[in-house]
Each structure stands twice: as structure tokens, then as C-alpha cells.
Computed example of a mutant assay.
Amino acid sequence: MDFINKVVLITGASSGIGAACAVLFARASAKLAIVGRNIDNLKKVAENCETESGHAPLLISADITIEDDVEKIVKETIDCHGKIDVLVNNVGISIIAGIRDGVQPLDKIMETNIRGAYMLTHRVIPYLEATKGNIVNVSSVLSTKAMSTMTPYCMSKAAMDMFTKCLAMELADKGVRVNSVNPGPVRTNFFTRAGLNSEHNDALMTNFAAMLPLKMVCESEDVAEMIIYLASDKARCVTGSCMLIDCGTKIGKVETII
């Protein structure tokens, strides 16, 4: 797979799955615009991308919950690259919370995971229609598998799956494909950002691996490989799909262990 002369816009690219995506797309010769709030981390990712491709990506420091920042993302990408072929809606947050924790965790998660992605996608669509490009959303196995300690997050990812399917129907007549990847547990800083300490996070990954049918958890690069496939011409007949990459989480008997 190569993305020569293709422009790929990736949100949440400063760490984890987003950072792994940036490096893989760089290796495949894509022109990149990478977005994140942590500019220092973005610079490190950019260095890795330049090592792979010989070209530095466009770095955009932005918060997709802020409408002016969303406009900035699109403007800077178009000013630099002139077009957009692929949008990877990867940015997302989680909070370990249930209904007893009130509405604030839900509001915060939905603002980033859904509203932010919706605003950015709305502004990018005209450019994707012009290039007959595509969108890959990062969802989760928890869109369909309940975890009571992460109720707002599960709700946001269920919404992301429906967003994916509705967009795929709405944009198909313009030749724009829309899909999602739905990871299970991934070895990133996801749970530490949700409130766990590093020691608890490491133990959690070990426990997940022991319970999952494949006896392992995904790495960021595994998910990135699925994303780059869906974004490529090899997946030209795939749209409206929510692709599990979960080491068997969905079919296994994974209990709530957070």
C-alpha cells in the first residue's frame, strides 16, 4: 500500500494509536497533517515520521472541542497541502465513571469523542468529496460490549459507530467511504489518562491478556495497520463497516476489572 501524493489528516496524533498511524502513513509516502494538544509530543512523532519518509509532517496544535481550532486545522492543512484525501478521527478521551458520578463525565466525553469529531468532519467533507477520499473513525469494542465502570465512554463509542454508518450512507453517492476500527484493549496510556496510575495500568493489561481468547492485547501498531488498510484503495469496496480488532474481546468472557 502506498499513499504517494495523498494527504492524510490525523487527530490525536501525539501518542498511542494516532502516533502509530502517523508513522505508518509516513512510511507509505503520505503527506501528513498531524493534530494534537501536546506540541512536544507531536514534535517527537514528527521526527519519527521524517525518519520514515524524509519529509516533515505539518504539525497543528489544536483542541477539537474548540470551534476556532477546528477551523484552524482545516485551514492550515489546505494552506499547506491543498487538499485532503483521508481523515482519521482518532482523538478521544475516557473517564472511569458510571451513572452515579453524574452528568459531567458524559458531557466531557461526548464533547470530545462525538461533537469534536462531528465538527471537524463537517468541515472536511467538501475536500473529501473533491478527492473521493475516505474517513476512518476510531471507535471501540465497548460500543457494543457494556462496561459499567465506563458508561459514558461506551455511550460515546456507540454513537461513533452510528455516526460511521450514517455518514457512509450520506456520502456514498459522492464516492466517499466511511469506516471505523473498533479496538479492544490496546497497550497505550489510555487508562492512565482516564485516571489509573501506571502500575495499575500495567496490571490491567496483564489481566486483560490473561482473559482474552488470544491471550494478548493489541499494540498501537496493530490498530494502525487496520486503519491504513481501510484508508487504502485495497478497501475500495468497504464502507459503513465497524471493524473489530480486539483479540477476541467480543466473543470472550471479559469481566469488568477496572
Rank of each mutant, 00 (worst) to 15 (best):
L87S: 03
T65P: 00
V88K: 08
C80N: 10
T65Q: 13
A62K: 00
V74C: 08
I78F: 10
L59H: 02
E71Q: 12
V88T: 08
D63L: 05
I73T: 01
I64K: 00
E67W: 09
L87V: 05
I66Q: 09
K83E: 06
G54V: 14
I60R: 12
K75T: 09
C80F: 07
I73P: 01
N89Q: 13
I78A: 04
V74W: 01
E71K: 13
K75C: 02
D69E: 06
K72Y: 09
H81A: 10
I73R: 06
E76W: 00
D79G: 06
H81W: 14
L58Y: 07
V70T: 12
V91N: 06
N89R: 09
H55C: 06
K75S: 08
D69H: 15
K72H: 09
K83R: 14
I66H: 10
C80H: 13
D68Y: 04
P57T: 02
I60S: 01
S53W: 08
A56I: 07
A62I: 00
H81G: 01
D63T: 12
T65L: 05
K72D: 08
P57K: 00
L59E: 09
G54S: 14
I60T: 02
N90D: 12
G82R: 06
V91F: 05
S61A: 15
V74G: 02
N90F: 02
I64V: 08
S61Y: 11
D69S: 13
A56M: 13
C80L: 01
I64H: 00
P57G: 11
K75Q: 15
E71R: 06
L58E: 11
N90W: 01
E67V: 12
G82A: 04
A62L: 08
V86F: 09
D68S: 15
K72F: 09
D85C: 05
V88Q: 03
I66M: 04
I73E: 03
I66T: 09
P57Y: 03
D68C: 07
G82E: 11
I66E: 14
L59Q: 05
I73Y: 05
G82Y: 04
V70E: 05
C80V: 08
K75Y: 07
I66N: 14
